[in-house]
Design a protein around this nucleic acid. Structure first.
Lengths: 159, 159
DNA sequence: CTTCATTCTGAATATTTATTCATTTCGACT
DNA sequence: AGTCGAAATGAATAAATATTCAGAATGAAG
């Protein structure tokens, strides 16, 4: 139907603004624009248009056009071994660990560490040849070393 | 809790495979891996991890990691509100706070924090998706949260 | 070791979203 | 115009998901 496309086009516009968090809300918005339909139809439209309700840290949930997932950490193993080669040394200070690398390696190693979301590690910050690792309180040096070996098996013995 | 991170890590692995289309299904999968939890908890995990149920032309609906929407070339919003959207989570270790953001947001948020010269905060260091905030001694978690909300009102309630 | 506060979780429930089933609408063709 | 079949829709309902509320676990502070 002709109306259907106009409607979906309007839906697109509204979603784009990024502040819709339920179909009911969207429905109301559409009514003000002169589109009269039920939630059932809306649900079908959204499905067809591949619009998803996504959790949002601040807004709760928001409807968005979704891109299918990035194949991010699908193949960590290979680059990881390679990255381990950039490793220089590891030292500790309180709840911080400082990992030194060959110049230029730091950020790529840090990215790998971050992606694994290891629970012992709150986060990392990388410069050019140094990575600062912020550890969870109460984590021992050994714990951290284990975690790192998990991530980069080739480190085994280098530490 | 320790278990919570292991669990979320497992969730990530399962979702990654791309054939989960309901929480119930995911729940069952997790049970076989030895994680015992309820749908309520799972819902909360998914929200926290920003995993969304997305319509899929052939599979119906699939759970996926979603990309935050691309800030298209729509007129730049009020910087501060905009920045709050990049927020992921906030955790503490001693006198440090680690603020995690959507990839790419860290430095711009850090700049804003630095500019305010909040007395609770000695300084910040930003990577790509992590900001390290060095707090003044004696500052509590709540104090820092308050300070951040001052800076980015939209954070209110989401920390 | 207690007490207190905070975080985490499950059970029950509320809310939201998808689907079923019946009806209507529309277009193509006589 | 009338009939057929396909697509679209709404009402009701089923199914799925989010949240509330209360209790348990954990951790910090005496």
């Amino acid at each position: 139907m002709k109306n259907r496309f106009k409607r979906q086009s309007e839906i697109r516009k509204i979603i784009q603004k990024g502040s819709i968090n339920s179909q009911e809300q969207l429905l109301a918005e559409l009514k003000t624009k002169g589109f009269d339909l039920t939630q059932a139809t809306l649900s079908r439209d959204l499905k067809e248009m591949q619009i998803a309700k996504m959790p949002h840290p601040v807004k709760g949930y928001v409807y968005v056009f979704t891109e299918p997932e990035k194949p991010k950490n699908t193949a960590p193993m290979k680059p990881v071994n390679y990255l381990a080669d950039g490793f220089r040394d590891l030292r500790f200070s309180g709840t911080l660990a400082v990992l030194r690398t060959q110049p230029g390696y730091a950020s790529s190693i840090a990215v790998v560490i971050d992606r694994t979301d290891t629970w012992e590690i709150l986060g990392t910050i990388a410069g050019d040849d140094t990575i600062l690792i912020i550890m969870k309180e109460g984590i021992s040096k050994a714990d951290l070393v284990n975690a790192l070996v998990q991530i980069m098996p080739n480190l085994e013995g280098k530490i």
